[in-house]
Amino acid sequence: MASLWEYANPLKFMRTSERVLPYVAGAALLCLVGGLVWGFFFTPDDYRQGATIKIFYLHVPSAMMAINIWVMMLITSLVWLVRRHHVSALAARAAAPVGAVMTLIALVTGAIWGQPMWGTWWVWDPRLTSFLILFLFYLGYMALWAAIDDDDTAADLTSVLCLVGSVFAVLSRYAVNFWNQGLHQGASLSLDKAENVADVFWYPALLCIAGFVLLFVTLVIIRTNTEIRARRMRALLAREQVA
């Protein structure tokens, strides 16, 4: 069994990931369509929240992804800083816009959900506020990538930003909690099932979460491969000039 690091070679990564891509994409489509249709049409309305509960199937997975994508970027940034594998840095770069969009989806669906529940689109609740701050971190991260011409310099700087930013994002989370105790309900899903929503909501939600994860993997593979190709093109062009 070859080591995992073998896939750190851009070309090897590209070849392998493109073979896997159709299956991942197909599975993502299946899970998303299955989960959403099941959730939207084949689950009962909540006895308190009525049909608005349906937005749960978009809100919770996107919110989970928003945080997990940042964690994934943190890990890939560390891998880049320690082992200097290009794929790692490019994957972090590729994941950032997806993460930003997930955060945005979580915020927007949250607002749509919050309007009938709390009677307002927006409150300065700790969870909402931390997501807004997380969104700002995504924006800053992407802006820094975009601003720097040299790829390796950009990868180094954004990786350090990601590390330092993570610390401040966590700090902000606690600071915001301290600042205002909110309206938002506790975590909707946890591994402890006694605390959880009923099974009828739980299974389609799981399917949706799986769908979002697979969708993310699909998008990151596509975007990473695009970055690799762009980088390869620049390298080849530079070589032509030298020759």
Binding site: I133, L136, F137, L139, G140, A143, L144, A147, I148, T153, L161, V164, G165, F168, A169, L171, S172, Y174, A175, V176, F178, W179
Partner: peptide, 24 residues
Amino acid sequence: TVGLKRGGLLMSLLVLPMYVPTLI
């Protein structure tokens, strides 16, 4: 942002979110 031509605005975008805990 030290090497960037127009780093000022970008720097604000990077720094301000990190100011949140201190400000709070």
